[in-house]
Amino acid sequence: MGKQVARYALLVALAMVLSWLESLIVFPGLLPGMKVGLTNLVVIFALYRMSLRDAAAISLVRVLLVSMTFGSAYSFAYSLAGAVLSLAVMAGLKKLDKFSILGVSIAGGVCHNMGQLLVAMAVLGTARLGWYLPWLLVSGVAAGTATGAVGGLVVNRIKPGI
């Protein structure tokens, strides 16, 4: 029990640091809230090495804490939509067993961006943001490939029991 709590705390802390790092990386032309997805590393680790429930709990706590510390009500809505959609799809694809961790992570990256786009459309009250979709698809694939590649290494190399 104590070990489990410590593990949660460790991963949430790691996810928060990655969120903060990510907030420092700003590309011109990106809509706010659209990020590289470094924190997805932690979620992938939890999903593959622990369970979907653990991954969901860590992801949710991370979104809540990060929005309270660095963000706003808007950024909370973006992050939550991205996190929920991404985790749901990743869990589904993982269960399908047709893709490796790389493919699962790519789908997660793309869905993360989709979730944020949906919230942006709701906030702006317009479907006109559809033009942004292709860029989101490309950046989602790029981010997912990166986190999936690193995530694969992490999942395989970190000793069991940690």
Partner: peptide, 17 residues
Amino acid sequence: KKHRGDLLLAGSILLLA
């Protein structure tokens, strides 16, 4: 087989984009 799945997934998303 899984890597082929990955490639197919990434490829089709990029094609759509």
